[in-house]
């Protein structure tokens, strides 16, 4: 477990390293990087707005997903029934769902002519949050179920022999898996804030409304506005990195 803790940090750090290599060896990048730093340092209101929107939309998505992922994940991790492996396999398979495909399905559902058109979710930040919540459901459930399963199975027997009923013993198992559950939720948030497909299809990159870090990076790069893209990408990376670091700290505390 200890080694695995460092994997997210390692991955993000290596991304940053690649970034820096690009800065030094690609001319376009070097210029853009300087400009990007200036943009961030100046506290450009547009950049700040986009950053907060990203955190808001994906944060809401994460909170929404917790509502169903924690109960389902815990139930899946604790129970043992025929077909459990199939359901776990299904969630594992859904981990890799292409975000664009999901975005397309949601577009067809949410757009004004779709079956859920009357809910007004299309081009709406809440609609994007719901889309992202659906997107991260498999990853969160899978991770939570694994975290609960990873708790020493003897813990349940221990709680019971100390006098706990079946339900009380299940709560003990949940408590013991807290750090894994936290990790699952964080993984969900990281996937949500980094994805492009759903937010682009449902949000359509509306300025001030559904424009987030990923959509802006995609748009500005194609427009040749590399400096802004680099600035936003740096912000996105720092968000993901600091959250991973924070999770690590929390996990060490919980142990």
């Amino acid at each position: 477990m200890k080694k695995a803790d460092f994997i997210p940090i390692f991955v993000v750090a290596s991304f940053l390293a690649v970034f820096l290599v690009l800065v030094f060896f690609v001319e376009e990048f070097t210029e853009g990087f300087g400009e990007a730093i200036r943009l961030i340092a100046s506290g450009d209101p547009e950049i700040l707005g986009i950053t907060f929107k990203s955190i808001y939309i994906s944060g809401t998505a994460t909170v929404l997903s917790i509502l169903w992922c924690v109960p389902v994940g815990v139930a899946l991790g604790l129970s043992d029934f025929v077909g459990k492996r199939f359901i776990k396999g299904l969630f594992n398979a859904l981990l890799g769902i292409p975000t664009v495909a999901l975005g397309l399905i949601l577009y067809l559902m949410f757009s004004s002519s779709g079956p859920l058109g009357s809910l007004n979710l299309f081009l709406n930040p809440i609609g994007v949050s719901i889309g992202q919540a659906i997107l991260i459901t498999p990853i969160t459930i899978s991770f939570i179920a694994s975290a609960v399963e990873a708790v020493n199975p003897d813990v349940k027997d221990l709680a019971k022999t100390l006098g706990a009923s079946e339900i009380e013993a299940s709560f003990v198992v949940l408590k013991e898996s807290t750090s894994g559950v936290v990790l699952a939720v964080v993984a969900g948030f990281n996937r949500a804030i980094a994805e492009l497909g759903v937010v682009l299809m449902i949000g359509q990159n509306l300025r001030g409304r559904t424009r987030v870090l990923t959509t802006t990076i995609a748009l500005e790069t194609t427009r040749g506005n590399v400096a802004l893209s680099i600035a936003l990408a740096l912000i996105l990376l720092s968000i993901v990195l600091s959250i991973s670091l924070l999770t690590n700290l929390i996990q060490r505390r919980l142990k």
Partner: peptide, 16 residues
Amino acid sequence: AKLNTTLVFQKTTMFS
């Protein structure tokens, strides 16, 4: 009845 009997397991298990 469980409250009146308790078992110490061979493999020690501790809550964190």
